[in-house]
């Protein structure tokens, strides 16, 4: 039973069944990754292009490893040092890459919606590796997968997403994903970094980070995305760290041991202190580990017989 979609553009388009299939498949890939031979020959007839118009270390490496461990051939492309700087359009760039017989495209782009635009113009399957401030589906999947691994299930679990909600594609994808899996979500951070009407997505808003921490089972802490903030939204990083940063003292004051997550890259001492990021409660590196298995699952499930009837 394949996924209900041809591309992985956003979590919004996925069904609960799709997500569960991805998790079930990722479970098996995780097992493969723990063997001495961490590779399967499944996609040896597939070529994947990783097209990154925006900086990335984790996501790009993770996708590349996932593709290689599936046996696929991989080509990498980054906007800097390419013909994009000579004025080539997105569709031309991608069509040129596809002309070299590439079967799947993994794309990160700074413009929200870019993968949807591309999906309307090309035949290959597209995996969104982050588009602007919109979605970052594989990150949300690996976050939920990591929580599921720790807590068994997401149903009824309380997840706090803390930090720059406004500019975070991780936050939006997580909200969709957690809601589909039956978790309760609270977003927390400075009012200027929380979009108005976010309650319409079915989440609670809590401006007091301490209260959010007391409420939750899992805190997913996000980075302040200074590169996307075009006007001052809080006075200084130091002030942000004082009011919204998470330190060990706050965690020790809670009644239960909550799980700490962060999608990376971490700004130590800003949104999260080192003594929290490196503590036993942190599953930050498990998230990274699970990322490869999740991406293997997504790429595997999107390959195979192409069916024209599938919606985008």
């Amino acid at each position: 039973m394949p996924l209900s979609v041809k591309h992985l553009l956003g979590i919004k388009e996925l069904t609960v069944q799709d997500i569960e299939q991805i998790f079930q498949t990722a479970d098996e890939f995780k097992q493969v990754l723990q063997r001495p031979i961490k590779k399967v020959p499944t996609l040896r007839d597939t070529t994947v292009a990783n097209i990154f118009f925006e900086n990335s270390t984790r996501t790009r490496l993770s996708f590349e490893l996932a593709e290689k461990r599936l046996g696929a051939d991989v080509v990498n492309f980054s906007a800097s040092g390419s013909s994009v700087s000579k004025g080539e359009t997105l569709i031309d760039t991608v069509n040129n890459i596809l002309a070299m017989k590439v079967d799947m495209v993994v794309m990160r782009h700074s413009a929200s919606g870019a993968p949807w635009f591309l999906a309307n113009h090309i035949d290959a399957s597209i995996v969104n590796a982050g588009d602007g401030i919109n979605e970052h589906p594989t990150q949300a999947l690996l976050d939920s997968f990591s929580i599921r691994e720790r807590l068994g299930s997401l149903k009824g679990k309380r997840i706090a997403i803390i930090g720059d909600i406004m500019h975070s594609r991780v936050a939006l994808s997580n909200i969709y994903c957690l809601a589909k899996l039956g978790a309760e979500v609270t977003v927390s951070g400075p009012p200027t970094l929380i979009p108005k009407h976010i309650e319409s997505l079915g989440v609670r808003v809590e401006y007091n980070v301490k209260k959010a921490l007391e409420w939750c089972d899992v805190a997913n802490v996000l980075r302040i995305q200074l590169e996307r903030q075009h006007k001052p939204l809080f006075s200084t990083l130091r002030e942000y760290a004082l009011f919204y940063g998470i330190n060990k003292q706050m965690l020790d004051g809670l009644k239960k041991k909550i799980i700490i997550m962060h999608p990376g890259p971490i700004n130590r001492g800003v949104e999260i202190n080192s003594d929290v990021a490196d503590s036993g409660q942190s599953i930050i590196l498990n998230q990274v580990e699970n990322g490869v298995a999740i991406r293997m699952a997504v790429i595997y499930l999107l390959s195979g017989k192409k069916d024209a009837q599938l919606s985008i």
Partner: peptide, 17 residues
């Protein structure tokens, strides 16, 4: 599942344990 020789020519299958 991951070792089949017909991955591309049939519906993709969710693996078992």
């Amino acid at each position: 599942t991951f070792y089949r020789d017909d991955v591309q020519s049939r519906d993709i299958q969710v693996p078992s344990d």
